[in-house]
Design a protein around this nucleic acid. Structure first.
Lengths: 221, 221
DNA sequence: GACTAGATGTCGGGG
DNA sequence: CCCCGACGTCTAGTC
C-alpha cells in the first residue's frame, strides 16, 4: 500500500464527470491497483476513486489511471508532503454475524413464531420462482401455502418484492392461493400500510428473543 | 488526518458483530473523528469503520471508538510501523455532472423524445404526490396525462416506483386515466417484462444524442 | 425525526 | 460475464 499526502487536483471521467480543485488530500494506492482520493472528513467514502482492475501511469507530477471500461482518473500533483509504501500482505478477512441470513436461519427453524396459531411448517428455504427465490415457503395447519419475505429492516420495497413473488406463486395451481407474511426486526409505518392494502401480514420479530429460543432448545440436549 | 500502519486486530459491535484477526492494516482517522480500517486491496471500502460523530479513546495499545447509537469499534494494536498526522484543512469539494438530474433536465426540455408521435408537452417536473414527486408529468396531444419516471439505469424497483405513483395519480379524477412511461439510458430485461405486464411503456434514451439535440438548439441562437 | 430516492453505490452469489 | 438482491449500505433532500 502506498500513501501519498499531496496538494493535488483531480478529474474523473467515466460514469459521470467530476472535478476536484487543488487542495491537500490523501492518495491511497492499494496492492490491487485501486486508487482513492480522500479528504480529511466525510466518512469513509473517498472524494474520487478507481477500483481495480486498472492501469496506472505515473509521471513526475501527474497520475493517469484508466480501467477497461474506459473510465479515467487523472491526478495532477502540485506538492508532496508524504510518500510512503508498505507491503501489508493478504488480509485474513472479516467474519460477520447477525445479518439477514441469520434471521432467515432462525425463522426457518421456528416458523411458528411468525403466526403462533397457524401451525406453520417449513416447506423450503429460498423457494425458487422465475423472478428469484422466496425466503421461506411454508404450509399452515390447513394446508394453505404461505410465502415469507424476511428483512432486517422492513421497508416499502420489501413489500413490493413479496408482492411480485405472490403474483408468480399464485399462478401455480398446485400452490394457489398463497398468502404472504412480511417479517422484519422493525417495519416502517408506510410499509405496514402498503402491506395491509395488499392483504400481506406484517410480523416484527425480536432477534434477541429468537436467539434465546434457539439457545433454550440447545440447552435441552 | 492521522495515518497509522499497524499490526492489529479489530472488533465491531453494533448493527452486526464482526471480527478481524491480527494483521497489518492501515488505520485512518479523519479530522471529523471518523475511523476506517483498510486492507491492501478490496476497492475503497474499509474492512471496518466508524463514522462521525463518535468518541475516540486511545490507550497504549488499544483504541476504543463509540458512537451515540451505542456501536463500538475496538482496535488492539500489536505493532506500529508508521504513525503520522497532517492537517489537510477543509476540502473545496467535488463538482459533478451527468447524473440523473441532468437526464431529467434534458427530457423535461424535450419530452417529445419519449413518444415522438404523441405530442407530449410538459406539465410539471417533480409533480408532487403524497408518496413523493413524479419525475415528469406530461399531457399528450389528446389531453391524456402521462407520468414519466426517469432513471440512469432502468431496473425493476424503478417500475415499482412508477407503479406506486400511477396508483396514486389515478385516484385523482382530474387526472385519470394516467399512463406511464419508464425512461432510462438502458432498461434491464426483467424491468421491461414487468413494465409490459403493467401496461407501462419503456423508452431507452440516448444521453449523448439528447445532449446533441440540446447543443443544436443552442447553436440556433 | 421520519421518509424517500439516488449512488461512479459496493459486494457477493447464482446462472 | 450479466443479473439480482443485500448492505453496518451512505447521503442528500423534503416534509
Amino acid at each position: 500500500m502506498r500513501l501519498v499526502l499531496a496538494r493535488c487536483s483531480v478529474t474523473y471521467d467515466g460514469r459521470l464527470t467530476a472535478e476536484l480543485p487543488s487542495a491537500l488530500r490523501l492518495l491511497m494506492v492499494k496492492a490491487d491497483g485501486c486508487v482513492a482520493v480522500h479528504a480529511d472528513g466525510g466518512a469513509y467514502k473517498p472524494l474520487n476513486w478507481m477500483n481495480a482492475p486498472n492501469t496506472f501511469v505515473e509521471d513526475e507530477d501527474r497520475w493517469v489511471v484508466t480501467n477497461p471500461k474506459g473510465e479515467t482518473l487523472e491526478v495532477v500533483i502540485d506538492e508532496v508532503l508524504l510518500d510512503v509504501t508498505h507491503e501489508l500482505g493478504e488480509d485474513p478477512g472479516l467474519s460477520k454475524d447477525g445479518v439477514e441470513a441469520h434471521l432467515q436461519q432462525l425463522l426457518a427453524a421456528h416458523p411458528d413464531v411468525l403466526a403462533p396459531d397457524d401451525g406453520l411448517r417449513l416447506v423450503r428455504r429460498e423457494y425458487p420462482t422465475d423472478i428469484g427465490p422466496v425466503d421461506l415457503l411454508c404450509r399452515d395447519g390447513d394446508g394453505g401455502v404461505v410465502a415469507v419475505e424476511i428483512k432486517r429492516r422492513g421497508e416499502i420495497d420489501g413489500v413490493d418484492q413479496l408482492t411480485r413473488y405472490l403474483e408468480r406463486l399464485n399462478r401455480d395451481p398446485m400452490l394457489a392461493p398463497v398468502r404472504g407474511i412480511f417479517a422484519a426486526q422493525r417495519i416502517k409505518p408506510q410499509a405496514k400500510t402498503l402491506a395491509r392494502e395488499r392483504g400481506i401480514a406484517c410480523v416484527e420479530v425480536d432477534y434477541d428473543e429468537l436467539r434465546g429460543v434457539e439457545s433454550d432448545e440447545l440447552r435441552l440436549f
